[in-house]
Design a protein around this nucleic acid. Structure first.
Lengths: 211, 211
DNA sequence: AAAAAATTAGTACATTTGGTCTAAAATTAG
DNA sequence: CTAATTTTAGACCAAATGTACTAATTTTTT
């Protein structure tokens, strides 16, 4: 990718996070990047392409961070670590989650991409849950669709904890991420077997430095 | 309240729900109400006051609907019914929940009001949970703060199910409300005692007509 | 009925916005 | 080195927006 395009993307992430997508005009963004607005349009004809570019960055970061995970730890610990690194990515791209609704309305292509990614996320969680059941960490379903429904709830939480936090909390980044990672884990807690609950109690809060 | 002011509020609710707050200018709103834009400004000098007015309506509707609830039913049934009527109010004021973040940023006073209402909501849930425990429908806490955390999760779900639905679902109103009311109830399910689960299974989906 | 107050409409303005067009400047290719 | 291509900037435009101001009309008060 072009250097200018990269500059644009980096700066866009920075000031979208700071001011919110809807408060940043292409003119303002161009000024912050240090180029003319027509130049910006030359590289990104519409704002939608900037957002798509950033969403791509977001996905890459998510994959990248997950790859670095330690595998020689318990399933539940690893679930927690994954959650936490995921939530750090969410934080780094907070503009996206804070204005999810806006963005989806204004840019239909982004919505499409999101819907595709959603399936991947579901499958990931399904896998984890099956794994936990197989390892006797999680009880089995008490009624049909119980865990599919749990996954839906988890996804809603994952998508919106940041938004909620920005309304009701005044927490610094680190504490915020810890709080909501822990809250996500509690979605699983009441379904855990005794063995699972024992592992749950041993969760270590790891604090990998964000890049 | 003035008749014109009422007209404005009603129309605002209608077209905010349809187009989203950020896509409606005072000029457009005035045109839809059938008055001049300067007249609209005369009654509501800022958009914030319209939003505050609508939020007031929202609260009133919520209280009003809850009053009409049948009390001679099981706690869990009544919790479900309350949830469902509450979610219908959410739907009727969907502009608000779809753009929660926007609105809070643009209008600080709305954010203040929300924070105040939040406490009331928490207390309500605390009460319900205590009640359910006292009636042996819900197990007691397994660790300190377990149910406070549950309440936080429930509130996040309540605030954002609609937003999530508008991105990932294509459901008609009725089904949507049923689906997410049911999903909310599942936040409680895994904490229920056997007695509680028996009651849970008997939940009847009531469909009170919205005014 | 006359005066005062509240309500309504119309106009006008400065600003901002996304977007187009043209030409200059920088880079790359031959 | 020169021509072609890519990149960049600046000027310009039409549309929309919030806001202010003035004047007309309606309602209320006296």
């Amino acid at each position: 990718m072009n250097k200018t395009k990269q500059n644009i993307l980096n700066k866009a992430l920075e000031i979208y996070n700071r001011d919110g997508v809807s408060n940043v005009s292409i003119r303002q963004l161009a000024k912050d990047v240090g180029i003319s607005h027509s130049n910006l349009i030359y590289h990104y004809p519409t704002q939608e392409e900037i957002i798509l570019g950033l969403h791509d960055l977001l996905l890459n970061k998510a994959v990248e961070l997950n790859i670095g995970l330690v595998q020689n730890e318990s399933l539940i610990q690893s679930l927690y670590t994954t959650t936490r690194t995921g939530f750090m990515v969410v934080y780094n791209f907070r503009f996206f989650f804070k204005e999810l609704q806006n963005i989806c309305n204004a840019f239909p292509k982004v919505k499409e991409v999101l819907r595709k990614v959603e399936k991947v996320r579901s499958d990931m969680y399904k896998n984890i849950i099956e794994n936990m059941i197989a390892n006797d960490l999680l009880r089995s379903e008490e009624f049909k669709g119980e865990f599919d429904d749990l996954i839906v709830r988890i996804k809603i939480f994952s998508d919106h904890w940041l938004e909620s936090s920005s309304i009701y909390d005044e927490l610094p980044e680190e504490e915020m991420i810890n709080k909501y990672s822990y809250l996500l884990m509690q979605h699983f807690y009441p379904y855990l077997t005794n063995k699972g609950k024992d592992e749950y109690k041993t969760i270590q809060i790891t604090t990998p430095k964000p890049h």
